[in-house]
Amino acid sequence: MKRANRCRDAGDWSWRDDYQVALAVASLLEGAGANVVGPVGWAEEALSLVEDASAQIDAAILDVDLHGQKSYAVAAALARRKNQLAPDLLSRVR
């Protein structure tokens, strides 16, 4: 049960172009208490969600191929976002 509690406040994202698989993954995450945004099937849409500063993103599930487009730019944006947030989080811990 502790795992479900950890997921409760997490903003988890699921991006898949296979909609049925994406819905199943989202359902499993929600069952564990996560707040799921998505699924999103297009790289441009996923990128705009990642770049939304108000969005809480704690985890992401990416399909490498989204309707023929690679999701590498989305992964890079998630990494940049993590690096931007990390110093702020570290300053609060100290």
Results as ranks from 00 to 15, higher is better:
Glu45Trp: 01
Asp65Asn: 13
Trp42Ala: 06
Val40Gly: 01
Ile61Trp: 12
Leu47Gly: 01
Ala24Glu: 11
Asp9Met: 15
Asp18Lys: 07
Val25Glu: 10
Ala26Lys: 12
Ala22Met: 05
Pro39Tyr: 04
Gly11Pro: 02
Gln69Trp: 08
Glu45Ser: 09
Ser14Phe: 15
Ile61Lys: 03
Pro39Gln: 03
Gly11Gln: 03
Leu29Asp: 03
Ala60His: 03
Ser71Gly: 01
Asn5Lys: 14
Trp15His: 07
Ala73Asn: 04
Ala53Ile: 09
Trp15Gly: 01
Leu62Ala: 00
Val21Pro: 07
Gly31Thr: 07
Leu47Val: 01
Arg6Thr: 07
Val64Lys: 05
Gly11Asn: 04
Ala55Cys: 12
Tyr19Phe: 12
Leu47His: 02
Glu51Lys: 12
Ala4Pro: 05
Asp58Phe: 08
Ala4Lys: 15
Ser14Tyr: 15
Gln69Arg: 11
Asn5Val: 11
Arg3Ile: 14
Trp15Ile: 11
Asp63Asn: 10
Ser54Met: 09
Leu66Ala: 01
Val50Ala: 00
Ala4Met: 12
Val50Tyr: 00
Leu29Trp: 03
Val37Ile: 10
Gln20Ile: 10
Gly41Lys: 06
Ile57Tyr: 01
Ile57Lys: 00
Cys7Ser: 09
Asp52Ala: 04
Ala55Asn: 13
Tyr72Gln: 08
Ser54Arg: 14
Leu23Ala: 06
Gly33Trp: 11
Ser27Pro: 00
Cys7Asn: 12
Ser54Gln: 14
Asp52Leu: 04
Gly33Thr: 06
Asp12Phe: 15
Glu30Met: 09
Ile57His: 01
Trp15Gln: 05
Val25Cys: 09
Asn5Gln: 14
Ser71Phe: 02
Asp12Ala: 13
His67Ser: 08
Ala24Lys: 10
Ala60Ser: 10
Leu49Lys: 09
Asn35Lys: 15
Lys70Cys: 07
Gly68Ser: 05
Gly68Phe: 02
Tyr72Leu: 08
Leu62Pro: 00
Gly41His: 08
Arg3Gly: 06
Ala73Asp: 06
Trp15Ala: 06
Asp17Ile: 04
Trp13Lys: 04
Leu49Asp: 00
Ala73Pro: 06
Asp52Cys: 03
Ala32Arg: 08
Leu49His: 13
Ala4Glu: 13
Val36Tyr: 01
Leu47Pro: 02
Val37Phe: 13
Trp13Glu: 05
Val25Phe: 11
Arg6Ser: 08
Cys7Lys: 12
Asp9Phe: 15
Ala24Ser: 12
Gln20Met: 14
Ala53Val: 10
Glu51Met: 11
Gly11Cys: 03
Ala32Thr: 07
Asp52Tyr: 03
Arg8Ser: 10
Gly38Gln: 00
Leu23Gln: 09
Val25Pro: 00
His67Phe: 10
Arg3Lys: 11
Asp17Tyr: 06
Val21Glu: 10
